[in-house]
């Protein structure tokens, strides 16, 4: 990509990343949540990949690491559900509800939001990597 694209990407990619994290963390107070924030974080990584090429990104974050993160997200969500099971029933809200309209409130909902965010980010980014890294070798039949 050209110099303009690279410079703009350097200036904006981390802003997009921070916006996604903000949306995930405030998911129980303002519009947003794990789904939207996860997609936005994935978009910031895709932004970097499109501007700098896949090698620059894969040096920092390998494909295997993305798969590990995805499993971590799924297992964290399941673990939250199982902790709720220990407190009464599956997906019970086992933490105290706390003061409403605070960042630390709503029991286990922010934790679930973070787990879903990691899961959606890693899943979509690995789908994108699989679609980009493909080398089509035609006519091998």
């Amino acid at each position: 990509m050209s110099l303009i694209v690279k410079t703009v990407t350097r200036l904006t990619a981390w802003l997009i990343l921070l916006y996604g994290i903000n949306i995930i963390l405030h998911g129980h107070l303002t519009p947003g949540g794990g789904f939207a924030g996860g997609v936005i974080i994935a978009l910031s990584f895709i932004h970097l990949t499109l501007a700098y090429g896949k090698d620059a990104v894969l040096r920092q974050l390998s494909k295997e690491a993305v798969h590990v993160w995805e499993s971590v997200g799924a297992l964290a969500f399941l673990a939250i559900a199982l902790f709720g099971g220990a407190a009464g029933y599956f997906f019970a809200n086992f933490l105290p509800a706390g003061e409403p309209f605070n960042l630390f409130s709503a029991g286990s909902i922010p934790l679930s939001n973070i787990a879903i965010g990691i899961k959606v980010w890693a899943g979509l980014f690995s789908i994108f990597l699989a679609l980009v890294l493909l080398r089509i070798n035609r006519g091998d039949k």
Binding site: H28, L29, T30, G33, A97, P100, A106, G107, N113
Partner: peptide
């Protein structure tokens, strides 16, 4: 639930 965003 203690969450202000009802959709969440």
């Amino acid at each position: 639930t203690g969450a202000a965003n009802l959709v969440t």
